[in-house]
């Protein structure tokens, strides 16, 4: 792999206006990290989890409101709180 890409995965074919998208990338010293990202709702309950792509990216189709994005990678767990809204991309860069 040739380094991390900024932001979330390619949006081609995604109906951005009608989805509530939370996306981003997980990096360590600027390089993508292979691991998992889970989405927790406002009460801290698990909602979804995805593996990061080869370039460290992830995406969720959520609903409006407050969420926690949790990166799980070998040796580290990192949380980021976000507020998502419909039609707008919520970008979450996570450095571990």
């Amino acid at each position: 792999m040739c380094g991390a890409k900024a932001g979330g995965p390619d949006l081609a074919g995604v109906d951005v206006a009608n989805e509530t998208i939370i996306q981003g990338s997980v990096t360590r010293d600027g390089e993508p990290v292979n691991g998992y990202v889970r989405l927790l709702d406002a009460s801290g309950e698990f909602t979804a989890e995805v593996p990061t792509s080869a370039t460290g990216q992830f995406r969720f189709f959520a609903a409006e409101g407050q969420w926690t994005v949790r990166a799980l990678v070998p040796g580290a767990t990192v949380d980021r709180k976000v507020v998502a809204s419909k039609g707008a991309l919520t970008e979450v860069p996570i450095a571990v």
Partner: peptide, 10 residues
């Protein structure tokens, strides 16, 4: 509030 897990399009 959601129809599918949040890593899938709704």
């Amino acid at each position: 509030r959601l129809l599918a897990p949040a890593h899938l399009p709704q």
